[in-house]
Each structure stands twice: as C-alpha cells, then as structure tokens.
Write a protein that binds this DNA or RNA. Structure first.
Lengths: 252, 252
DNA sequence: GCGCGCACTTGACCCTGGTCAAGCCGCGCG
DNA sequence: CGCGCGGCTTGACCAGGGTCAAGTGCGCGC
C-alpha cells in the first residue's frame, strides 16, 4: 500500500481525547488540559501484523506501549528454549513496564493479530509526568495494575486445578471484553490453544479436553476461535473449588 | 520497654545516607543533596514482631514500605480461605506497590521474624519524586523490579518441576543474601517449610523430600532452619532441566 | 478440486507430586 | 524429667494431568 492511497482512520490517532479508549487508558480521570500535555508525549506506531514482535527480551528500553486495537502476548524464554506466556494485552492495556528496572526488556511482546499501538517514549513521559501530577499518579496506577494482574496469575498457577484455571481465564477475558464494550458472552480468542495452555501452565491436550467437558456440561459452546459462554453462573462456579466435570462423553 | 530506657541503635535511622542499605535501596545512585530530600519523605516505623501484619489485604493505602532488617512474607487469601504466598521480602526490598492501583492493599504482609521497616507515606513520596527526577526514576526502577520478580516466579510455577523450583528458590535466596553481604553458602531460612511449599506451589511433604534428596546427593546440608549449600555448582544444575535426584535413601 | 500442513481433538497409558497416616524431634511447660 | 504440641519427616497409596500416538478438519496453495 502506498502512503496516501488508502486512509485507515484507525491509523490516524488525533489525540487521546478523541480516542475511544481514553476512559480505560492512561488518560482516565485526567482533565482536558493535562490530556493535551499527555498528547505531546504519545507517538503513533506502525501497525504490527500477526506474529510480529513489538519488542524482544533483551532489547534496549525506549518506550512503553499501549495497545490501541488488536492484542499481544508477552512471554519470557528460558535458556532451555521454552517460553512462559506472562499475559495477553487487550486495547487500553500497557506493556513494557518490566523494562524500567534495568533499561532492557525482560520479556518479548508479539502481536496475536493485526494490532496497532501507541508508543510512549520514556524520556518524554518522564518530563510530562513530572509536570502533570495527575498523570504521574495515573501512570503509577496503571503500572500497579500490572503487578496485581501478575499476582492473580500467580494465585492461579499456585493454588488452582486445571479446570479452575481455564474457567478463571475465560471469566477474566469476558470481563475485559465487557470493559471494552464488547459482548461478554461471545469471546473471539485471538490466541491459539497452545498459547492458552502455556499461559495456564498446562498442555494443549488438557485445555482441549477441558473445553470439551465444559461444552458437554452446557456451560460453553466452542467452535475454533469462538467461545460462547452459555451459563456464566456455572462458569463462575468452576472458578472456586468445584468438583471436576465428568470426563465421559455421554454419561449424563 | 519504656521510651528512653533502652536505646536500640537500629531503631534510630538517622538518614538514608547513613543507612547500611543505601546502595541497595531507594537511594541507590542518588546524590547527596537529593538524598536529603528523600529523607524528608521517610518515616521510621515501629518494629514488628514475628507473625505481626504490616498491612492486610483490603486495607486502605497510606504508604509504601521498605524492610530495614528482618523479613516479611506477602500473600493473598482467596475466598475459599487458603493463601498463596507471593514473595519474601529481605532488607532493602520494597512492599506495598500493588496498592497503588486502587488505593487498597491487594495482599497482606506479615513479619517472619522481628522486623523493622521504613515507611514512605505516599503523599510525601509524590511530592519528593516530583521535585527530584533521579528519585522518580529510581522509584520506577524499584517498582519495575517487583514486576520482574513476579515474572520469574510465574516462570517457575508454569514451567519448572518441583525439584527445579526448590533449587531455583535456594539460589535466588543465596544471591539476595550475597547482595546483603551475608554468607551465600549458609542460609538461615526465616520462613517455615509450609511457607516455602506454598510459595513454590507444592505441599510441605514434597519440599521435605526434596531437601532430603538434595542432602543425600551431597548438594546441601539441612538442619532445621539452617541450609548449607555445599555444591553451588550442582545446585545450579538442578535449576535447568536436570533429571530428578534418586528417591531411595541409600541406592547410590 | 486435491492434497498438504497445522491447529486441534481424542484415546491409552504413566509419572510426578498430592493425600493420608504415622512417626520423629526439639522445645516449652508443669 | 516427662508430657504435649507444632513443625517437620517418612512411607504407602493414589489421581490429576502430562506424554505419546493417532485421528480429524479447516484453510491455503497449486
């Protein structure tokens, strides 16, 4: 595509104020004037195609990023070569915070689908957050949310059974879709079964079987990337310490 | 104890500059003048006895805290009543960052032994970090370290076997002891076996057995709270994907 | 339209680590 | 000095979920 021939409106981020996400993102709770200051620190970033990396573990740190549309996965690779997925980032969510510790990214971020990004060059951010206390506060808030999200992930990995993990994952995704004003009952999963399994500390076969059992139990309807939550109440029940759903395919 | 009758020098934090931890803690890399500004934002906090809570999940957020001596565990409790330990905090380490997200502590912090604490009231911190850019940068660095530490914990929970988890835990503890200029080979564990097991996502029996096997393999000598690392090289080997140590108590 | 590949599903089997139960040991207390 | 308790260890057994292998089906290129 030649520059100028096709005009993608999503590409033209005019300002945080005119962005549909501004209530969810860094500008949340910031007044009009301060938001204009924030705008000076935000740069657009080219859209990433599926599978492309936003940054790679070990890269020098230049900027924080916010997902505008699409989604990312962040993961760390260990010396042995296998990865652990740390999280999935939906629109309005920030990535790159781990790089503040020592000016190198500690994880990689990869687009799960065509994804556009706002870039917050850190030098500009520092200046603006210094001048705008409300933005400073809000940045801390957003970073702290990262910490809290990782804590929930840890609880899931440490204390929950496979079935509870998948149920918790689906509920959390549904809730985040809700915040984006999407349908909370129809999830279009941008990540593969392998990614889900890895994120949950399971193997893909286990995830597949659990989807099957939840479908048999009438809680979900699953069709490739599309998961319908038919019984949110029962799904919520599976997040606690419920008994495992039956394994047989027609013993009911 | 009456005020003034017994003078505990550790209780009298004169300033960050005179604190033995200042190279590890918030003041790291900050010049003399800025450190004096920081001092105005730091308050001493009464020492906590073993088992006492610094803050509790759900408490209103007032301050961040830094361990001066002793140690803490942080943990979240789920509705079902059981807890997941998120981490152990040694001197120089910050706690309470998760509360910045929505002004409530998301986890509880409990002293594992007699522990003294520096308190950083957040309103003062905000003011000081605003005036002192180097301190702002350093606070972000310290918070980001929290994120990175949780990421490592996640990798451990998601991808490592029981034996690798315990080995990784011991190595990490040893390394942190080193930073505090303590002996890296002789660990005095302030936490119980139950705490270790919980932190690692295992049960106490498994931890006990693994200590036994590592002792049989000549890697450790274990005596209640005292663990000597006899072969740091072999311990490092167990952190990767090594084969499990033999289970039998004399088949070697 | 056909065939290939990849993502996913399904089944059979097995192993790591959890559960349950008993025993040990160091410590505080009567 | 003996008792009891709590933290820890040890053993026997079991099951949740991992491994291995085969099968299904959608999408894409030719």
């Amino acid at each position: 595509m030649e520059a100028g021939t096709v005009l993608d409106l999503n590409q033209l981020r005019r300002s945080c104020g005119s962005c549909a996400l501004h209530e969810l993102c860094l500008p949340a709770g910031i007044d009009r004037q301060d938001m204009e200051r924030l705008d000076t620190a935000v740069r657009d970033k080219r859209t990433l195609d599926r599978g492309k990396l936003l940054f790679r573990q070990g890269d020098a740190f230049h900027a924080l990023y916010v997902v505008r549309s699409g989604s990312l996965k962040t993961y760390v690779e260990n010396p042995a070569g296998d990865a652990q997925i740390l999280g999935f980032s939906l629109p309005g969510e920030i990535v790159g915070v781990d790089a503040l510790a020592d000016d190198r990214h500690q994880c990689s971020a990869e687009a799960l689908e065509r994804t556009s990004i706002c870039e917050l060059p850190y030098s500009m951010m520092q200046q603006v957050t210094r001048d705008v206390p409300s933005l400073h506060r809000q940045l801390m808030r957003v970073i702290s949310r990262e910490v809290v999200a990782e804590q929930s992930h840890l609880v899931m990995m440490g204390r929950q059974q496979a079935q509870e993990r998948l149920a918790t994952f689906l509920r959390s995704l549904s809730e985040r879709y809700g915040r984006l004003s999407r349908d909370t009952a129809t999830l279009t999963l941008p990540m593969s079964r392998y990614d889900i399994a890895n994120y949950l500390g399971l193997v893909v076969e286990t995830v597949s079987r659990l989807f099957g059992r939840m479908e048999d139990a009438g809680i979900l309807s699953v069709n490739r990337k599309t998961v319908r939550i038919l019984r949110p109440d029962l799904l919520a029940g599976l997040c606690g310490n419920a008994r495992p759903l039956p394994r047989g395919r027609e013993a009911g």
